[in-house]
Write a protein that binds this DNA or RNA. Structure first.
Lengths: 187, 187, 187, 187
DNA sequence: TATGAATGAGGATTCATTCAT
DNA sequence: TATGAATGAATCCTCATTCAT
């Protein structure tokens, strides 16, 4: 049932925007009565939290899988970026909400923050692996992890803002070389 | 008076978050009557637009100055990042709002988008200059511009989230080398 | 419930005039919460439309019945006038509103106009029947229909303004002869 | 100055409708400050009363002139109807307000009522003259006066609702015969 | 007298949440 | 557990009126 409400929420957000997600619309989309929603979620805030968690669950899972896999650090960065863009492309409206409005309501700020912290942690791990293995030079891993996350987020946002989705591959092919070799000539 | 309302708005946002900015709270913070607000702004939307524009005005101005100056592309990138972080550090609450909640309620989405487009445009210009001058290698300038913007934004956000502000210089010293030389060893 | 709100609306209008009909007063009169009103009417405008339609429904119905009946044109005119005054006498406060303030705020202008157009249409039909049957002489039916409607409305308004209601019959006995034989002597 | 405000009020009503007549708009149209209005009118209500009176002044004056003139009763009726339609046609927007919305605000009800009473009084006088002179048959003069007023008002309203103004003469030529000879054939 | 900034009561509307059935 | 009618606080906005200059 929570599952059904999650999907209904996504549908409503896709159609009315995140500000248009009201309990009434949600209930209609889920074909239940308004009161029923409150049997499964303490409050709208709880619902939002669930949507947030539910949406990032697969990404989170795959992120940790990638991190735990036995690849080079570069391979992991590539895999993570690719995986992320694939998800974003698959559920464009949902991520349009999650990327831009999620913290908006002031209600998901902590969730958003803890998620980011997790992502940054994983990226830091990858960077440290790369440094240890000699792939990467010594770095301020935290800052670089933040930069990578930021770059990916921004690419995703611009991607969503534009009309035609481009393949994840395409984007990875720009992202990774820039971070690996930099933009300076003769490197 | 618009000035006073602007400051009151920043104060309210700092305390209650952007979703907590109501005309009533604003009026109280500015020590005027509710109706007075409407003598200076056509609507809440208008107020928000003013706050947005007002906040980015100096950044925007300096951004164009830097772009128009006679430096190497690298110098411009450095200058822009430095300038940006200095502003952010100076008005932390305000940017906490602008960075996260600016598109709140969907009311400033277009302003935010046009601002971003402008920034990306300037960054593209700098990248093209660098390519032309032989500083940079051939690049997908649009994407790289987006990445740089995203990295800067994320650094700023994390900076604001953290407790102690770090000098802009420090951040620039991490950001620029990464984008210029990349993170790969032996480059 | 819509019924209850209708009656509450009539009561409020009777007491405060149509401009004094606020959602708050309506809710109090109906002994419900303000929000409840909006569970039954999309907006104040919708409420007003309902009141308008609800009030004229019976008159409208009987008007068309009379028009469709098999009487002389004169008989129909008499019947319509009688029927109208009977309704007006029965719900004095309501019609006090409808006759004077219906177009209030411009919100019911279109409803009022379309209703009038309908009435005029029916009256025209009756006049044409009378001309065809030889009862009436050739006439500018539209104008005469307007005149009859206006005369009836004005009689009703003055009736409502005065204190003691007079029987519909009495009024019909003045109205019809004037329109049929005119006021000139020796006719 | 009151004169100037009257004209400004008419202009505003013509452009924004009667509900759109605010003190602010009035002041702008009259090219004075808002506060100045209150040096000439105690309140908005007072202003409205003045507009009402001012608008009907010429009609009222001519009405009494006609009543006092030495014509047949029929001639007076004709003259009054003609005069009325001429005025209405000259200031269509103003009368659109006066005819429909004047009592709306609940503020001009008494003015409207006293004006009507006056008109009805004059019409009664004319009818009595006609009866005395043998032109008209014995009548319930009050009722017939009301009917005549109502018929004229309705014709005027329909006239204003329609797009192209028709000459006053045309209308008089329909109105008077109907009231004089009636609509019955063979009369 | 003229000004116009400031006022604040008042009004329409939304929506998360409750609760009796 | 499911329902959905009822709630009422919260919010944006309007505008007649006042008053210090």
């Amino acid at each position: 049932m929570r599952e059904g409400l999650f999907e209904a929420a996504v549908a409503v957000i896709a159609q009315h925007g995140s500000a248009g997600l009201t309990i009434e619309r949600l209930a209609i989309a889920a074909r239940v009565a308004k009161g029923t929603v409150y049997n499964y979620f303490r409050s709208k805030r709880g619902l939002l939290q669930f949507v947030h968690q539910r949406a990032y669950e697969p990404i989170n899972g795959q992120m940790h899988e990638i991190a735990a896999s036995s690849q080079t650090a570069r391979g992991k960065l590539e895999a993570m970026a690719r995986m992320y863009f694939e998800h974003v492309n698959q559920e464009r409206e949902l991520f349009d909400f999650l990327l831009n409005d999620a913290s908006v309501l002031g209600q998901l700020k902590s969730e958003q923050a803890s998620l980011q912290a997790q992502v940054i942690g994983v990226l830091k791990g990858i960077l440290e692996q790369g440094i240890a293995s000699g792939e990467f030079r010594a770095l301020d891993v935290k800052r670089v992890a933040e930069m990578i996350l930021g770059a990916i987020r921004q690419l995703a946002e611009c991607e969503l803002a534009g009309s035609e989705p481009r393949s994840a591959e395409e984007i990875v092919e720009v992202l990774v070389p820039v971070f690996l070799q930099g933009i300076q000539k003769g490197h």
